[in-house]
Design a protein around this nucleic acid. Sequence first.
DNA 1: CTTGTCTTTCAGAATATTCTGAAAGTTAGT
DNA 2: ACTAACTTTCAGAATATTCTGAAAGACAAG
Lengths: 190, 190
Amino acid sequence: MSADPLILAQDRFIAVWGQMSGAWGISRTMAEVHALLYITGEAMCTDDIMERLEISRGNASMSLRSLLDWGIVERAHKRGDRKEYFSAEQDVWALFRAIVRERIAREVDPLLASLHEIRDMTPTDRARRGEAIPEMLRDSAEAHNKRLDNMLEFFQVLERLGNRFVSPAGRGLQMAATLLSKMDPGGPRP
Amino acid sequence: MSADPLILAQDRFIAVWGQMSGAWGISRTMAEVHALLYITGEAMCTDDIMERLEISRGNASMSLRSLLDWGIVERAHKRGDRKEYFSAEQDVWALFRAIVRERIAREVDPLLASLHEIRDMTPTDRARRGEAIPEMLRDSAEAHNKRLDNMLEFFQVLERLGNRFVSPAGRGLQMAATLLSKMDPGGPRP
DNA sequence: CTTGTCTTTCAGAATATTCTGAAAGTTAGT
DNA sequence: ACTAACTTTCAGAATATTCTGAAAGACAAG
């Protein structure tokens, strides 16, 4: 059997990364496939992956497709070989920029849209000027709207931050480095 | 039935927040209970929650316990009433500081520990000075270690950032504001 | 110590997610 | 156009997660 420490370390990495799958909002197998491609640094074909991870062809195919959709794995080809090969982004910062980009698109944007819709469901002074609303109802509606606005504001800031992190290639690292070096533990300096 | 727009808006908010549950790594019901407490702004007892969300007593009890563990819901008491009441943190930034704090503790810290362990599984020049290792193996081990180190570096930065965001009360907001105001779209200025 | 009120627990049921494998689909080469 | 090599799809199986409800536990008041 394989007592090769490199293989063992790879397997352990794959297992650990698989456990993090929940944190990225992807399935365990997707994470394991990604881990395998990342940690070996090699381009592999479907059969290589099936064999190493002991998963079915269908599962491998679907996981690879999803990883391609997320933009963190890309197709590769070997000359004289009809098979498709796949390789993972090796730049860790680029990897996480891709993850943040997808999660903003899949989670934050739809949430903001929903929150705006909900915001439009309750009447306010602004919305209906002259119309009479029982005072008690108006008060609780205003408190409700304030709570919604606080949420909205938070996610708008989050989205702007995320887009800043994601946008031009390579900025994520600089942003983090700047943050950590320019701010002392007590907070930002003037 | 209730055509009260406020109730309808609350229900919609609860549903939307419930769908985000995956993003925070909590169950749908936990998120719905939290949403209910947040959007109504009221302290409610188990029976109130069971009735409004149409869930079982056991589910309500467990969800509330978990929310207490996360530190985003707290116990409250009403005089002359033996029942326990629960209310959600109303400061949105405090809410997300709590979430970040928990996720660092539950996900990032264990991951860093595992990555360090994995880092120690492969021999390097540093680790075993004189011992002979086949050249090919040594090269691939070094590439492997570099990949691990890149991951480690990323998560160390992430953890420091997270802790900065979380630490003294109120800093999260300032940090985000600083980020957004001090950096132009092209990147940080000297 | 007993009762009544409220809370927690947990085995099994219900639900949701993920995986398999065989069949259908696709494409390159001849 | 046919074949061989490879990829994708998807219904049903396997697995994992979440929920229920009844029983047990906890605690204050009398």
